[in-house]
Simulated scan of single mutants.
Amino acid sequence: MAVEARQDSATRAGAYRRVRQQLGIHPETLRTWVKQAEIDEGHRPGTTTSDSQRLIELEKEVRELRRANSVLRSASAFFAAELDRPQR
């Protein structure tokens, strides 16, 4: 809504203020939303919403894999120590 109002030359002046008042939100919130919409549409450089979500998913997967790797490393050290013990 704000992006469209800003693109129309007839409504450009004060577009953010009008939209912000209609929605009842803080000016910085609207500015952030418009900036992200422009990034998502390719009008501004930056990380798109979909790329950002994918990065979050990949970081979560990396944490899980590192945790699993740590567990497997500990288990292999434990079993290796058991095999090195003298048999009775």
Rank of each mutant, 00 (worst) to 15 (best):
D40N: 15
E38L: 15
D51C: 09
E57T: 10
Q53N: 09
T49R: 04
V62S: 11
E38R: 14
R44W: 07
L55K: 13
E38K: 10
L58G: 05
Q53R: 14
G46L: 03
S52K: 12
E59S: 12
T49M: 03
S52M: 11
T47C: 11
L55C: 07
G46N: 04
W33D: 08
Q36R: 14
R54C: 07
T48G: 03
H43S: 13
K35H: 15
S50R: 14
E59F: 04
P45T: 03
E57N: 07
D40H: 06
I39W: 00
E57G: 08
L58I: 10
E61I: 12
E59V: 08
T48C: 01
H43Y: 09
R54G: 01
P45H: 02
P45M: 02
P45A: 02
A37W: 05
V34F: 08
I56W: 05
E41P: 01
E59A: 14
V34D: 07
K35I: 11
G46P: 04
R44A: 08
G46S: 05
T47Q: 13
I56F: 04
Q53T: 07
A37H: 06
R44Y: 06
S52H: 12
I56L: 12
R63W: 04
Q53Y: 09
S52E: 11
G42R: 01
T48D: 02
T47Y: 05
S52R: 15
D51L: 11
V34H: 05
L55S: 08
L58Y: 08
I56G: 09
W33I: 15
K60A: 08
E57V: 08
G42K: 00
S50K: 11
R54E: 15
R44H: 08
T47D: 06
I39M: 00
G42F: 00
D51T: 10
K60V: 03
T49P: 02
T49N: 03
G42S: 04
S52I: 03
V62A: 10
Q36L: 12
Q36P: 10
E57P: 03
I56P: 00
R63F: 07
R54P: 00
E38N: 13
I39A: 00
G42I: 01
I56M: 07
H43N: 15
H43F: 10
E57C: 08
E38V: 03
T47F: 07
K35L: 14
K35F: 12
Q53S: 10
V34Q: 09
K60Y: 04
L58E: 13
K35Q: 14
V34W: 06
E57S: 11
H43E: 11
I39G: 00
T48P: 00
K60S: 05
Q36W: 06
D51A: 15
T49Q: 05
Q36N: 12
T47V: 14
G42Y: 01
W33T: 08
P45E: 04
T48W: 01
S52G: 11
E61K: 10
T48L: 01
E61G: 03
R44T: 09
I39H: 01
I56D: 09
H43D: 15
K35Y: 12
L55G: 05
P45K: 02
L55D: 05
I56N: 07
R54Y: 04
E38C: 14
S52V: 01
Q53A: 14
Q53F: 11
V62W: 07
R54K: 13
S50P: 02
V34K: 08
T48I: 01
Q36G: 09
D51P: 02
H43T: 09
G46M: 03
W33R: 15
T49A: 07
G46I: 04
E41K: 12
